[in-house]
Amino acid sequence: SLGGIAGRGVAQGDLEPNSYEDITSYNNFYEFGTGKEDPARYASAMTTDPWSIEIDGLVDAPGTYDFAELVTGMTMEERIYRFRCVEAWSMVIPWNGFELAQLLDKVGVQSGAKYVAFETLYRPEEMRGTRSPVIDWPYREGLRLDEAMHPLTIMATGLYGKPMPNQNGAPIRLVVPWKYGFKSIKSIVKISLVAEEPKTSWNMIAPNEYGFYSNVNPAVDHPRWSQATERMVGGGLFASRQDTLMFNGYEEDVAALYDGMDLQKSF
């Protein structure tokens, strides 16, 4: 399978991944409901084959690509990353995928492009959560072009060597390990290269709570909770919190992207 190919690891350290069971049973994927167990319960209704991704905007080769066609020729790797949710829980996940930069190189980014915008599938008949207006569907996310081109940024097509489970964003999702989890948009059907900062879903709902950047930062609290600590999922009823790391532990790799920016303001 496309998701099942493992390769060299990057920035893995000595991270111990959460169990497959944890990773696939505790999810935020509001298209299937707002409860953590809803995605595992209802996401099987989503058809992921056939799957196509529309790529448009400032690219040399715009078009609607079949999923298999799009990932052909990409170098698949396993990346064991920390995953930090904005709700102050975290996991360690062994993703399978390829660098987003490879895909962007394949379609040819034009010089005017400054941002990449992404959209999740919106198909109410298969995604029961989208029948409530919790979010202005479809779900949208975005990255600055240099963030998108960063080698830590991947498009994941699987985890634990298995194809991506529906509840985790099958068949293909973004993973940006130094940002809060909601930036890592799932089940992508559209990628646009654009000149202006794109609108992103949680930022549209509550701009004071969710910034465009949403880099993991223990020094900038979410208005409704502290971001200084987090709890690793899977530790049981008596697990204690651990300190949250700047840029989720990827500071060395990514801090330079934000040189000169006030991270309190551009949170």
Partner: peptide, 18 residues
Amino acid sequence: LFYQGATGGLGPEPIKAL
């Protein structure tokens, strides 16, 4: 519920669930 939380019945994040 407390028993469930302590024995895995409330999912992988039982503190929030409880």
